[in-house]
Amino acid sequence: MNIFRLAGDVSHLVAIIILFLKIWKSKSCAGISGKSQVLFALVFTSRYLDLFTVFISAYNTIMKLVFLVLSYATVYLIYMRFRGSYDSENDSFRVEFLLVPVTGLAFLENYAFTPLEILWTFSIFLEAVAIMPQLFMITKTGEAESITTHYLFFLGLYRALYLANWVWRYHTEGFFDQIAVVSGVVQTIFYCDFFYLYVTRVLRGSGKMSLP
């Protein structure tokens, strides 16, 4: 554990809690892509199956459980409890365009051709693109509430901090996970455009982020 990794995990947790509390307190999921949230629940489910096979540390186990519970709770709020506020009209990204290639790639490129390894690889690849329905929705409606942009900022920051963590681990431990690093770079690139808009419009302006 190094400072980048810890900051990355905290940033990830903050992002998920911001989104959950936003929906919970406002009793509305307007502007939130339910599809992205289902994909993230799928990411955690397929990655954390190792909860049943290996024990790393109490920190590791607790964080995995928290991510799983919060991701399913968020999906529940969007599709069940506050489904009246769900904007299915604008959440029209075709997730099969992500799921099919990601599944195919996980079978082709993995560390071992075993169910757990393929599912782990699937989760890493899927996470890299899971935010696309949300970004698509913002592009389509042309705006995002500032609290939604704070969520996206911390979610993007998390993987960027993991990149720093991997650079650190490479130099101190000689650790290099090609699948995670390449996907992590791709994932972070997807947020770059958003980071720019976040700094120039949300932080310097106020209220909603509207696209030109």
């Binding site: 990794r5 990830h12 590791n60 964080m63 991510f67 560390y111 650790f175 996970d177």
Partner: peptide, 10 residues
């Protein structure tokens, strides 16, 4: 070991 090192990340 590849798996063990990798699974310590979230």
């Amino acid at each position: 070991v590849i798996g063990r090192t990798r699974h310590d990340e979230l």
